[in-house]
């Protein structure tokens, strides 16, 4: 996914120390406190989150901005829609 489309990130959750499903649970907790339009980045070293988070985001009706591979972890970016 091209990174130039990535919007400005409102908050970053560093969940690199957590195993599955910790990063997703952290994301959900933060989305509940967020406003529509907020863009949240989750840093995760857990491979399961690469698929779990996009599936949850689709089901919950938010928007996946992308899953970006960083140095030894992923940056998973989600836009809150409601």
């Amino acid at each position: 996914m091209p990174e130039e489309s990535a919007p400005v990130i409102s908050r970053t959750i560093d969940a690199r120390g957590s195993f599955c499903p910790g990063p997703l649970m952290e994301l959900i907790r933060n989305i509940r406190e967020a406003q529509p339009g907020d863009v949240i980045a989750v840093l995760s070293a857990d491979a399961g989150s690469r698929t779990d988070i996009p599936r949850w985001v689709e089901k919950a009706g938010h928007r996946m901005v992308g899953v970006f591979s960083r140095d030894g972890y992923d940056e998973i970016v989600v836009e809150t829609l409601h």
């Binding site: 599955c20 499903p21 997703l24 649970m25 959900i28 089901k59």
Partner: peptide, 11 residues
């Protein structure tokens, strides 16, 4: 607990 968490977060 992981199954419970996974199902709970999916609603």
């Amino acid at each position: 607990s992981l199954f419970a968490a996974g199902a709970a977060v999916l609603g």
